[in-house]
Amino acid sequence: MAARWMIWGAALSFLADQASKYLVIHWMGLDQRHRIDVLPPFLNFRYGENTGINFGLFGGGDEAARWILIALSAVICVVLAVWVCRGQDKSWGMQLSAGLVIGGALGNVADRLLYGYVLDFLNTSCCGIQNPFVFNVADIFIFAGAAGLIFFDGRRKKPA
C-alpha cells in the first residue's frame, strides 16, 4: 500500500487528539473546573471553545461559519492526500507528515461536528511571557505535519 505511513499517521494523530480531549475535558472535569495547573507556568490546562481557526480568528460562532470550516478542512485533507499519493516523492516522511496534518484536521472536524466548536485545553508559557492562547493536541500534529512536509520535501533545488 503506497500510503501506509499516511494512513497510520492520520489514524494515530486523530485517536491521540480525541483521547486527550476526552481525558482532560471530560474525565478530569476541565469543562467544569475551567483550569488545572499541571506544571506552571510551562503547562496548564485551560478550557477553551474555539469556533474559529487558529487563535480564534474568524470565530463568529454562527452555523454557516462552522460548516464552511468543516468543508474547508475536509477539502484540504483530500487535496493533501491526493497530492502526497500522486507526487513523485512518496517517502515515509512525506506520508507521515501528511497523515499528521490530516489526522489533526479531522480531530478538529470531529469536535465541530460533536460540539459545534473545537475543544482547546493546552496552555504553555515560559520565561516571563504569559501566553493567553489555548490549543489542543490536533494543533500540535497539524503544525508538526506541516513542518514535516517542508522538511521532507524531496525536490532538490538546481544549482544556479
Score class of each variant (00 low, 15 high):
1 M>K: 13
5 W>E: 12
6 M>Y: 06
6 M>E: 08
7 I>F: 05
9 G>P: 06
9 G>L: 10
10 A>I: 07
12 L>E: 02
13 S>F: 03
15 L>I: 15
16 A>K: 10
18 Q>P: 01
18 Q>H: 11
20 S>W: 06
20 S>K: 06
21 K>V: 04
21 K>L: 03
24 V>K: 14
24 V>S: 07
25 I>D: 00
25 I>V: 14
28 M>A: 13
31 D>T: 10
32 Q>Y: 00
34 H>Y: 13
34 H>S: 14
36 I>N: 06
39 L>H: 03
39 L>N: 03
41 P>R: 13
42 F>L: 14
44 N>Q: 12
46 R>I: 10
46 R>Y: 08
47 Y>M: 12
47 Y>R: 15
49 E>S: 05
49 E>A: 12
49 E>W: 02
50 N>H: 02
51 T>H: 15
51 T>F: 12
52 G>N: 05
52 G>L: 12
54 N>V: 15
55 F>A: 13
56 G>D: 05
56 G>Y: 01
56 G>E: 08
57 L>M: 15
61 G>A: 05
63 E>F: 01
63 E>D: 14
64 A>V: 15
68 I>M: 15
68 I>Q: 04
69 L>S: 06
70 I>W: 00
73 S>E: 01
75 V>D: 06
80 L>G: 01
81 A>F: 12
89 D>T: 09
89 D>S: 08
90 K>A: 03
92 W>C: 01
92 W>M: 07
92 W>V: 10
92 W>S: 13
92 W>A: 13
94 M>V: 14
94 M>Y: 04
96 L>A: 12
98 A>D: 05
99 G>R: 09
99 G>W: 03
100 L>W: 08
100 L>T: 02
102 I>Y: 02
103 G>Y: 07
103 G>A: 08
103 G>W: 10
104 G>I: 11
105 A>N: 10
107 G>F: 03
107 G>N: 09
108 N>A: 07
108 N>D: 07
108 N>L: 04
108 N>R: 11
110 A>M: 13
111 D>L: 12
114 L>D: 04
114 L>C: 05
116 G>T: 13
117 Y>V: 04
118 V>D: 10
118 V>S: 10
119 L>I: 08
120 D>C: 09
123 N>M: 11
125 S>P: 10
127 C>A: 11
128 G>H: 11
130 Q>P: 00
131 N>D: 14
131 N>P: 09
133 F>W: 15
133 F>A: 09
133 F>I: 04
135 F>T: 05
136 N>F: 09
139 D>L: 12
139 D>H: 11
139 D>C: 08
140 I>L: 15
141 F>D: 01
142 I>F: 02
147 A>F: 03
148 G>C: 11
149 L>A: 05
150 I>M: 11
151 F>R: 09
154 G>Y: 03
157 K>M: 04
158 K>N: 11
158 K>F: 01
160 A>H: 07
